[in-house]
Every structure is written in structure tokens, then in C-alpha cells.
Simulated scan of single mutants.
Amino acid sequence: MSEPIPPLVSCAVVFLAAVATLLSLARVVLPATTVRRLATPSSHVTPVRPHFRPYPARHAAPLAGEATRSVRPYVVAAEQATRRQELEPAALGLDGPGPYVIHGVEVA
């Protein structure tokens, strides 16, 4: 007759079998945490031609300096600050006195 298996060993075998089953189920159910990449670069990517410009120039010649108006940043900042101060009461729901001009139209 063979020796009986100790209860601790049989519990350990059952536990390891359960862990192995859970791990195999987890691999099937849960998505992979990393993206598998090919060892070599993919061959379906076409090389960019050396003369190809991805963003072609919109103008053939550079713009003349006289054609554009230069704006000083401090002037724009001052105008924005003034506009914000004018709009603060309206944001709080307060009505200001007198007529105002909005988009060139006088509004009472």
C-alpha cells in the first residue's frame, strides 16, 4: 500500500491549480497592458521624397512690410484691459447708465 498524502500537500496542490486557472482566465478576459511592437520597422511606410514639402508655401514671394500693420502688444493689452473693465458690471448683472454703441449700433 502507498502512503496517504498529507492534507497540507493536497491543499497546496488544489490552491496552485486554482491560481493557474484564474491566471489563464485573466489572460483571456483582460486586455494586454503593453502594445506588442514588431522587431523590425514596418515595410508599408513609404519614405518621404526629399523635394516633397508637407506644408507648401501659400505665397510665392514674402509679404512686404508695408502691406501689413504692426501692432504693439502693450497697446492690445491696454485695449483688452479697458474692455474687460467695461464688461465687468454686465457680467454681474448690473445695467450701466446711458446709451452704448455695440458693433457700431447705438443701444439704449
Rank of each mutant, 00 (worst) to 15 (best):
A12E: 03
G93Y: 00
L38C: 14
A61Y: 09
G104K: 00
S43P: 11
V35Q: 12
S2G: 11
R69W: 05
A39Q: 11
E106R: 08
V105A: 02
T68F: 10
P31A: 04
E86I: 03
V19L: 15
Q85P: 00
A17D: 01
P56V: 01
A91C: 02
R69Q: 12
E79K: 08
G98S: 01
S24G: 09
L22M: 10
A17K: 03
E88Y: 02
R53H: 06
V105W: 01
P50S: 11
V13F: 05
G65N: 13
R72W: 08
A17S: 08
P47H: 04
A108Q: 07
L30A: 12
P97Y: 02
V48L: 14
M1H: 13
T21R: 06
V29S: 01
V71N: 04
T68I: 12
H103A: 13
V19A: 14
T40W: 08
A12F: 07
A12M: 05
Y100G: 11
R69Y: 05
A26D: 09
A39K: 08
R84L: 10
A18L: 13
Y74M: 14
A26M: 09
V35T: 14
A67N: 07
E79G: 05
E3A: 15
V107Q: 02
T46F: 11
S70L: 15
R83G: 01
A77N: 02
A91I: 01
L16K: 08
M1A: 15
V105F: 04
R27D: 12
S70C: 10
R58P: 03
S10N: 08
A91H: 02
V35H: 08
A91V: 03
P50F: 04
M1D: 14
R69D: 03
I102W: 02
R27F: 08
P56S: 00
G93T: 01
V19Y: 04
P99C: 03
F52P: 00
A60D: 07
A77I: 02
V29M: 02
S2V: 10
T33C: 13
T33H: 15
R83V: 03
R36G: 14
A78V: 06
G96V: 10
A17L: 07
P54L: 11
G104T: 00
C11D: 09
A77K: 02
Y55P: 00
A18Q: 03
R49N: 13
P97L: 06
Y55D: 06
P7D: 04
H103E: 10
P4W: 00
R83Y: 03
V14L: 12
V75C: 07
H44V: 11
L23C: 12
H59L: 14
L8C: 08
A67H: 09
S10V: 07
T68H: 05
R69N: 04
A57N: 07
Q80F: 05
T46Q: 12
C11S: 10
T34N: 14
E66V: 12
L16T: 11
G65Q: 06
H44K: 09
R53W: 02
V76L: 15
S24M: 13
P54A: 09
R27N: 12
V9W: 05
A39W: 07
R83F: 09
A20R: 09
T21Q: 04
